[in-house]
Design a protein around this nucleic acid. Structure first.
Lengths: 341, 341
DNA sequence: AAATCGTGAGACAACGTTGTCTTGCAGTAG
DNA sequence: CTACTGCAAGACAACGTTGTCTCACGATTT
């Protein structure tokens, strides 16, 4: 006799009851005599029986798998990892598990992973959109599987959406620098097509405009090294900026490296979007507009779990505040006085 | 008519073939006339049919789900996140998806999550053991589901094991400090029952012994704040250490904070186990024994996928080298000359 | 005391898919 | 021209579970 997985039938035989009674006990129905139920549970224990999830799901159509999918930019970066962790905590409190995947800003990968999670019967999805359009979700996802978007808004599919107040945060950063006397403030932004970058850029522009300054933007930076190179070039120009506003944590780190190499880290001001670990231990410590990835994760998970529990209200947009954390680098005053008025 | 999920039968009717033929096409069997297969595929496309994973798994017993489970200490910490990312990349190349969970060093949670993943038919598990014994795996996991352990060895269950050379790395760190003239070297370690801490402590002790020095250990630190507090107390003593060797990244960071606050960061030497982002940008930059979490993740994933593909050799132990990265903090010489011989 | 009700427990079918067996048909050898 | 082979494609059962229906039995009502 080979190592066969025990079935409800085996349990029923061992306990001397019918198959159906075992099913009832396993599903916690209360219409079973306690003595019988105890016998069944004993048999389950001694056979080490586990219900076959597939068979169960096959029979009952409404069945939840107790799994949600989380699709973020990169499970390895601190922002996504913190969000993941918060989602996991919130889910765990409800007995729900989390499947996570990294998109790498690749729309094809986004669609692939959505399909994969749909096949695995995820009860719902938390998605940080990578592609420009999420219309495909209607076709790839069963109609009763809700999606909550985080970080970036979605196009072409309705769902709750948890966003940081990107534009407001950017305005705050620029005003802060202006308050410290800066008039040449450069913006170093990420990929041009990412919605977050767009919002931050918009905030930068409007604040710069409102103050009557000339905007100075470099867009489309992909990573820390690109940001470092660009920053070094920036300070070779005849009239370099006196302050930098960087659009995301990797760019901020690249800028810090460049300023350090150029030995400008004590006079060029820097405010970064996104907090990052150890920002407070650098010299000078880095002033940031902090998002709250944990709060975003919690909010997204809560919204999703409510939808899964049947909430049918109109999709909401939940926006999570950003905080300016002054640490030093953003409070440096310009060294070279502007010659104008 | 309600929104019913299309079945193979629906596809068969639409394509004018039998149910079984659809099954053959879906499973890529080659015994189907190309013209028929094309008709079937067209029908699948127009109905947007997806095979019901549960029903499929129910019927074929050998079926892989294409999912592996990853159980790490905390998906939010940089080490685990990097490992996760590497596992995901390696798995993705084989079309396999990754379910991840955080254990928080809690043995109960470890067992819970293993059960949860078993229920979801994970094809295999990568586990960084939290508890002292993994004997329960034999009962909770079907006999054909392989487990690969990372970071810490397992007890009571056979499986491949991917470890960093913890003891060797610790010896290296201590020798490095000794070479720079230190004779009072303190060790700040993590939880006493974690195998990694044990190994690192062992390495510290043997290197200190070999040099004829007196060991000086503080164990059981849980996080960054505990490490910070302990370090501050340490330097209030009459003869404080001239060098610190810290047992993991969170402890290193706590120690850095304390040294900074005490303004000892320019004279007390520090070598940390585990690299961490921005260690090179601190002042002084932090010398570390770097593990290679990405390499560990890749090795673990490869080993697991081989096992899943039927590899049956004896369990291997794969050990991944650590690297000493000198950056400054570990090359500070002791300021107060020892008065001895 | 007969009729009614409520409740616990079993019989049976069905979920969507795949393994096995059978059928039908064309091609080929005798 | 018959018999046999090979192969594509269909018929049917089975996987392990749960929904629905039915039955038996004791308690309550008339």
């Amino acid at each position: 006799m080979t190592h066969r997985r025990p079935t409800m039938n085996d349990v029923a035989r061992a306990a001397g009851v019918s198959l159906k009674t075992v099913s009832r006990v396993v599903n916690g129905e209360l219409t079973v005599d306690p003595a019988l139920a105890a016998r069944v549970r004993a048999a389950i224990g001694s056979l080490n029986y586990r219900r076959h999830l597939g068979a169960s799901m096959l029979r009952r159509k409404d069945r939840r798998t107790g799994t949600i999918g989380l699709l973020v930019e990169d499970v390895g970066n601190p922002f996504s990892a913190a969000l993941h962790r918060a989602v996991e905590d919130e889910a765990r409190a409800r007995g729900v598990h989390v499947l996570a995947g990294s998109l790498d800003e690749d729309p094809d990968r986004e669609r692939d992973l959505v399909r994969a999670f749909a096949r695995r019967h995820a009860d719902g999805l938390i998605l940080a959109p990578a592609g420009p359009d999420q219309g495909y979700l209607a076709a790839d996802l069963p109609p009763d599987v809700p999606v909550v978007f985080v970080q970036r808004p979605a196009t072409g599919f309705a769902g709750d959406c948890v966003l940081a107040r990107d534009a407001a945060g950017a305005v705050r950063a620029v005003r802060h620098l202006i308050a410290y006397g800066h008039r040449r403030i450069a913006f170093l932004g990420g990929r041009a097509d990412a919605a977050t970058t767009g919002e931050r850029r918009r905030g930068y522009l409007s604040a710069v405009d409102a103050a009557g300054l000339r905007p100075f933007m470099i867009d489309g930076l992909r990573g820390s090294q690109a940001a470092e190179a660009v920053t070094r070039n920036l300070f070779r120009r005849p009239r370099p900026p006196t302050a930098l506003f960087t659009g995301r944590n990797l760019i901020t780190i690249g800028a810090v490296r460049a300023l350090r190499l150029l030995d400008r880290h004590r006079d060029a001001a820097l405010v970064g979007f996104d907090d990052f670990p150890l920002a407070d231990l650098l010299e000078p410590a880095v002033t940031v507009i902090a998002q709250d990835p944990a709060e975003m994760g919690r909010a997204a998970a809560r919204a999703l779990l409510e939808r899964i529990d049947g909430e049918t209200a109109e999709p909401r947009e939940i926006s999570i505040a950003t905080t300016l954390i002054p640490r030093g680098s953003g409070e440096l005053r310009p060294q070279v006085r502007a010659t104008g008025s």
